[in-house]
Amino acid sequence: MVERFTSDPIELPPADRPFQRSDLLFYGLDHSGASFEARVFMDPRGVGGEADSRHRAYVGSFFILGHGGCFGDVGHCDIPTDRDPFDLRPAHQLEPALRILTVTDAVRNLLERKVEAAKVTVTAHTAARTPSDVLAFERIRLATYA
């Protein structure tokens, strides 16, 4: 778990190919701990320091309502790695989440600046006095739709 993450550069769509919409998809998000706001920035060099929503690279936020910890015995909050195809029970409560952030204007602005790839920086913000190292996810995808 981390408080801040900056990705490798993610390729933007070709500037000469028009699109209607662009989404950043965050796969495999952990939601077992404290609730948080994730502020997202897109910039060719990444974003450091105490950037907030007024930063020019800020593209939006997504939110996670967290479980706030584990209230069971040992193993209660372990997500099963193998699932029997005949197991009709609901999925484990902590199966990872997906968030979709629409970033159409931000991608257009980057393309107008001749940017071909941008790093995605994500910073987690929790309630006061709550540790902010709550960020864990598997993958970011940038999808554009014609």
Binding site: D23, A34, S35, F36, E37, S61, F62, F63, I64, L65, G66, H67, G68, G69, F71, L98, R99, I100, L101, T102, A127
Partner: peptide, 28 residues
């Protein structure tokens, strides 16, 4: 699914904004 996922993020944000008991699934 896209609608639901984006609406849930807004929903989560209001839980976070309210804070206290509302900010955790376990007690909200």
């Amino acid at each position: 699914f896209t609608f639901q996922t984006q609406l849930e993020s807004i929903h989560d944000g209001v839980h976070v904004w309210t804070g206290g008991t509302m900010a955790d699934i376990a007690t909200a």
